[in-house]
Design a protein around this nucleic acid. Sequence first.
RNA 1: GCUGACGUGGCUCAGCUGGUAGAGCAGUUGAUUCGUAAUCAACAGGUCGAGGGUUCGAGUCCCUCCGUCAGCUCCA
Length: 577
Amino acid sequence: MNENMELVNQEEVLRHTTAHIMAQAVLRLWPEAKIAIGPVIKNGFYYDFDLDHRFTPEDLQLIEAEMEKIVAEDLPIIREEISNADAVKMFAEQNQDYKLELLEGLDPEVSLYRQGEFVDLCRGPHLESTSKVKFFKLQNIAGAYWRGDSKRPMLQRIYGTAFLNGKALREHLRMLEEAAKRDHRVLGRQLDLFSLQEEGPGFPFFHPKGMVLRNALEEYWREEHRKRGYVEVKTPIMLHEDLWHRSGHWENYRDNMYFSQIDEQNFAIKPMNCPGSMLLYRRKLHSYRDLPIRMAELGLVHRHELSGTLHGLMRVRSFTQDDAHIFMLPSQIQEEMEEVIDFVDAVYKVFGFKYHVELSTKPENAIGDDAIWEEAIEALRIALEAKELDYVVNEGDGAFYGPKIDFHLEDSIGRTWQCGTVQLDFAMPERFDLTYIDEHDQRKRPVMIHRVIYGSLERFIAILTEHFAGAFPTWLAPVQVQVIPVGDGYLEYAEEVAKTLFDGGIRVEVDRRAEKMGKKIREAQLQQIPYMLIVGEKEQEAGEISVRHRREGDLGSQKLETFLVKITEEIAQRENK
RNA sequence: GCUGACGUGGCUCAGCUGGUAGAGCAGUUGAUUCGUAAUCAACAGGUCGAGGGUUCGAGUCCCUCCGUCAGCUCCA
């Protein structure tokens, strides 16, 4: 075990002990509280309570103060091993019903940890005394279902964190502030990219600047797909309900779908693009020579998500998937899978994302028989191993029609997001009776891959916004160059400069306001515009421009043509700076 | 959907125990013509999320609904 791992473990033990101290403090303040579970999570811990009193933010301070007292009391933390039956007796006396329920699932021998008057059922380990806990903070209160089951009672959960030293705690809190500053909902408003209106909860509006960004992403996407042998299609947003019965969506996905009636016929708004693509494939007979067919679609889908889960552009009710369906011969599975994996890798690199991979297997509501699922999962394994990718397995987490590989990318402040997914599907071709004619003139069943790389344009834009903290690379920036005349006298020259750049394909604007240069620079900086071109008397006479970069600052003056060549190259290469 | 909190001009926020809305920024107009992150002044802008109710009187109290936020569950 290396030093770093030990540190992580020490931190986990510390946090677990802090969770106990918090539960002890809550019980001192509200003796009637029932305690549920209090595990360590990433960056902290929580403890769940069942209590009629509703915790308020002020209560957190009360609890923290009580925790400080417990720390000052320097209570030794003692491990005890007793029989499950004795534990049941003890917790029954304390009316700790949740502990009793937990005991039902545990061994005949269980361990307890005791500190002063407080005792908790716990595997441990813990620190040796409450005084060892020095740097902690309670963070927020939220509801959480007992055992994560929405049919069980909702408890009150208090989240907190603890660190081995004060510096690490402060650093962590600073990191949270940094994440809040990058929040795409805040930046989306400040940079005028998109908005959500009361009239359309979960249905985002894209503003002109947001559309520039979105179109740049689509343009890049089309370019890459063309290179890799994809064709592009567009299938309707609304299709007859019968189609969704056939695809299995009605059975498995109905709760998330929107329905409508036209001419007394039932229609559904698509929650996924695949059935539309299936119809396109079926339009004509296919020879084995035609395969693989790589059919891509920027498909607008609508899903009825629970209102409480909506979150800016990250979680919406209508979004565009950068979808593709690859119809292929069974013998082409591995090669196609590997190509898709390479494709995802290439795209994420352009944005500077690291990522990791997860493999999800057969879920409860799966269609298709076990043998087919085994075969599909095995095919994904082989492809991952051929690419020498490490992966985690999520049992039972696949789509209802097939297993999947998910790509979780890591942003600039270490958070991970699931974006790309690749799903192998034997079921849908069966349901739609897809065929191709093989070399012996026999009808055969093709196999299909569903995949997305961005995931959805909306979520990807949200992630990019937070990843770059609004400072998009020049190729994505809504405004690439802001021309700033020092005074009105140089407006004409500024316009000339802008025209040259505009004609060169650059997204350029002139700040024509009668404001001081300092203010114009400040505002261009706040808008995260990559380049500011300052023009005044000197520049006009020399036929030059002064270049200021949003991060590098004043770069001095140069010929406009020189600048145009450089920025054009930066954009063409999609440089990430 | 569930638990809790919140909802005041475009944005950020004041408005004590109910007496009939206020600031800064943004905007508009005018003055200023200025060298690398905020010039000055004036003006304009709000049926206080929506609908009911209590009251002589509601932004302030009560109810219902909508939306937002922190989570839970779910997910591109």
